[in-house]
Amino acid sequence: MSDVQQLKGKDFKSNQEVRWCPGCGDYSIISSVQSILAELGRDKDNVVMVSGIGCSSRFPYYMGTYGFHGIHGRANAIATGVKVANPDLDTWVITGDGDGLSIGGNHMIHSLRRNVNLKIILFNNEIYGLTKGQYSPTTPQGQKTKTSPFGSVDAPFNPLQLALGAGATFAARTLDVRPKHMKAVLKAAAEHNGAAFVEVWQNCVIFNDGAFKHWSEKKVRDDQTVDLVAGQPMIFGAEKEKGLRSEGCQIQVVSADEASIWDPTVESPGPGFLMSQLDKDPSMPRPFGVFRQVEAPTLDDLVHDQISEVTDKLGEGSLKDLIYTPDSWEVK
């Protein structure tokens, strides 16, 4: 029996005034994180939020947990140090499309390939917000921004494909305007043992307003998006009348009763990759939910297991052993 009181979402807030723009999608994300941490019974003194630079990266200051606001792009590396140094800490990375995929792209892929037990939330608003409106590595080609006044010529990343390609053992996508969906995805991420990559489509009301409206607005959402739920058929539409059927490398829209069952736990990243490829086809719905969820050893466990193994074999070393090695000699 624990006498620790069950915390509520508000207990995970800090005393600092939140300074995101009114209407920013970030508010919904932070409140979802606070409430799932409370629901999961997490100890706020054991949670560490690590961020880089950007609007999203102010996140740790607004949390009542331990937090580290790093430098641009390096959140994953800093968080890797935290987690490997003390695997007991519940360590989260808060990043954005610029921070995590552009300047920090390298650390992102390497933390995923190493399967560091981090929960990584990537706020994707397809724009640089804090520097006031330049194109990011997820901005669609052709979009006019402050640094692409005639339209961006850069081909964008698909964040999920990048994560899956890097070997992410957990990759998911959700949306700021669907808090219930977001909480379910974040909970699954929090409970995953390994690197969990969660892309959150997040509206920037100032510099990229409406970027996701074709998939986020209530009147179109049902027809334009499909929720991937493990063990359930992939169905969508206002009346749940449509479904997706996968055959080989093809995904087709079929009637609901012909829909395939979604299974993110297959070892191959192939199915998740195929689903994320639907983003390129305007006639297809955009998938949300968990794209991949597989078990694999984590870096933090492997590091400490190896230390234990070698120590068992060689015995615990002392400072004296380190200095006085068998090849030393005495002068009398």
């Binding site: 390096r74 590396a77 890797t80 140090g81 987690k83």
Partner: peptide, 16 residues
């Protein structure tokens, strides 16, 4: 993966 990650992990570890 690079020099920057080397020092950043060390900073994270010191924080921890």
């Amino acid at each position: 993966e690079d020099e920057i990650a080397g020092v950043c992990t060390a900073i994270g570890a010191s924080f921890a």
